[in-house]
Design a protein around this nucleic acid. Structure first.
Length: 563
RNA sequence: UGGCGCGUGGCUCAACGGUAGAGCACCUGACUCUGGAUCAGGGGGUUCCAGGUUCGAAUCCUGGCGCGCCAGCCA
């Protein structure tokens, strides 16, 4: 993060969370902030989590504090080791380091169990024998109070005994729960004797079968924060209603530290969906290639798509942090990604839809090595030799037999420049029986080697090209937004009905300059004039597969579309 | 007809009582061996509404309106 993100020059940025932290530091309430990123290992991380990761690790770094990675693994029925591993890898890939501070809520199960007992002894919690249905029925409504459980006033000793027997495995799932004893008439439903522990006979990815009672989020999260010395427990808006409970538990437990919960608005993006539930469905129903499908908003999907971590971090910095529910246009993310890629991606030649060009005045089989610029944005990237010969592939859409007014590229009788090579003029169009153009016969000007004419002639277009004798065929996967609608499922329509059926287009028989065959998986390049592409793990030894990360900004496409 | 939170250009976010700014998007021009990049410029806001306080309100107060979240033994 050495280069300031686009649009972020100037004074240090200050969102309301950083102001809170700064104020706490200034007032001496905290020495240095301790934050945490607390994912539940029940799925893969997505771009929304990236916002939170950048916030938590960013605040810690900026104020000389630290950020923990803590798994909120309190629900063994949904959590898996695969997710634990993927989450660690994704956070690391994003560029953040938790050092020694890797924790799990499950590390604290014994302590949490002890504190639950403390609450029971203090008359602040009780074992409830009601069923889930009964508890729901007596919780009341948004506008009306709930009713006390018949077990609410049972002796502490009895609750203690029952709670121990719950842990010992004497009861089936759902037979009893431990509840806080707060206020069944509270306007905040979270305070109507919330459930602290439930019986779950399931194997936990980390604790195995050691437990059959598990703390709920509410009983685990704040206390974990307290144990770790977290100063600012930053979470999303939907937990705002939980803050009174968070504070109540901290106040009534002998915790070693008092953390503070602060809420911000989660990220929403157009043309995609950031719901773990829906993402899981997309994967399970085979609508995508998996969690890391290049169309997925998951960190692993973005990575496979070719979005650099730096671009994602810049994006997070650009959009800021606030409490307003908002939806960011996906174009903003794409802007941040292009900004990084434009600076860093080596340029290469790749022809997606090849059309043969034969240079009729080329001397026989001669092959010349043209010196081609690797990155005009980065002189240090140097040049590379690219073979040039009598027969070449150019992009089919770079030729039009009857060019409209604003079309500058190749046409009969017209001269264009082949990038870093020669000027060529189209003399003849060869078609097959069906009338399809199959070959262009052109002549080149030997005086324009390298791409400049001695007489100062300047063609209006410069085309990319690949020598047919050297080209490597490849599969190219063109990606577009996962959903065709900016707000999928808006207006109560079926979410999946808004899927973009053209989100993935597979192109076979693209022709690439030979160097690309050896590129490592994950290598990002710019195919000149087309966009950014990344080598996909599906690539074979002699069968490269490239994913299109993003197109270049294309004003011609706009002209064409509008007219 | 509960509680909590939020309302500033198309989108996101600033402005913390003193003439409403930035990034993205959009438009125009310059430059260019990527119709890219870069540079310069432009259009666009009754700051949700109505009262009030104040010399002065996007900022403070009151009342509306709109939107979001909450009735899992999910997080």
């Amino acid at each position: 993060m050495t280069t300031p993100p686009a649009g972020l020059e100037g004074p240090e940025r200050r969102d309301f969370i950083r102001e809170i932290v700064a104020a706490d530091v200034a007032a001496g309430r905290v020495d240095a902030p301790v934050t945490r990123f607390p994912p539940e290992p029940n799925g893969y991380l997505h771009i929304g989590h990236a916002k939170s990761i950048c916030l938590n690790f960013g605040v810690a770094a900026e104020f000389g504090g630290r950020c923990h990675l803590r798994f909120d693994d309190t629900n063994p029925e949904k959590e898996e080791q695969e997710f634990l591993d993927a989450i660690e890898a994704d956070v690391r890939w994003l560029g953040f380091d938790w050092g020694e501070h890797l924790y799990h809520a499950s590390d604290y199960f014994e302590q949490l169990y002890g504190w639950a007992g403390h609450l029971i002894e203090a008359g602040l919690a009780y074992v409830d024998d009601q069923s889930a249905d009964q508890i729901r029925e007596t919780r009341g409504t948004l506008t009306g109070p709930g009713r006390d459980s018949p077990w609410r006033d049972r002796p502490a000793a009895e609750s203690l005994d029952l709670f121990a027997r719950m842990r010992a495995g004497e009861f089936p799932n759902g037979a009893r729960v431990l509840r806080a004893r707060i206020d069944m008439a509270s306007p905040n439903l979270n305070l109507r004797d919330p459930i602290l522990y439930r019986i779950v006979h399931a194997s936990h990815p980390r604790t195995g079968d050691a437990w059959c009672v598990y703390p709920t989020y509410d009983f685990a999260h704040g206390q974990s924060d307290a144990i770790e010395g977290v100063t600012h427990s930053i979470c999303t808006l939907e937990f705002e209603n939980h803050r009174p409970l968070y504070d109540w538990l901290i106040e009534h437990l002998p915790v070693p530290h008092v953390p503070r919960q602060v809420e911000f608005a989660r990220l929403n993006l157009t043309h995609t969906v950031l719901s773990k539930r829906v993402l899981l469905r997309l994967v399970q129903e085979g609508r995508v290639r998996g969690w890391d499908d290049p169309r997925m908003p998951t960190i692993s999907g973005l990575r496979r798509r070719g979005f650099p971590a730096e671009g994602i971090r810049d994006f997070a910095a650009m959009i800021g942090v606030a409490k307003t529910d908002s939806v960011i246009e996906v174009g903003q993310l794409e802007f941040a990604v292009r900004a990084v890629l434009n600076r860093t991606a080596p340029r290469r030649f790749g022809v997606l839809d090849p059309l043969k060009v034969v240079i009729t005045n080329w001397p026989g089989d001669r092959i010349e090595a043209m010196e081609v610029v690797n990155n005009p944005e980065d002189p240090a990237a140097g040049e590379r030799p690219v073979a040039f010969g009598r027969e070449l592939w150019i992009e089919r859409e770079d030729f039009l037999e009857e060019p409209p007014p604003k079309f500058f590229r190749l046409a009969p009788g017209r001269e264009v420049r082949l990038r870093n090579a020669y000027f060529i003029t189209c003399d003849e169009v060869v078609k097959d029986e069906s009338g399809t153009v199959v070959e262009l016969r052109c002549t080149y000007d030997p005086a324009t080697r390298g791409g400049d004419a001695p007489d100062g002639r300047r063609p209006k277009a410069t085309l990319h090209w690949v020598s047919t004798a050297h080209a490597v065929p490849a599969e190219i996967r063109l990606y577009d937004h996962l959903f065709a609608q900016p707000f999928p499922g808006a207006g109560g329509t079926d979410l999946f009905g808004d899927l973009n059926h053209a989100s993935e287009t597979i192109v076979h028989g693209a022709m690439l300059e030979p160097a690309l065959a050896d590129a490592p998986v994950g290598a990002t390049v710019q195919f000149e004039r087309l966009g950014y592409f990344v080598k996909d793990p599906d690539s074979g030894p002699d069968a490269p597969v490239f994913n299109r990360t993003l197109t270049l900004r294309d004003t011609w496409a706009r002209v064409r579309a509008s007219g």
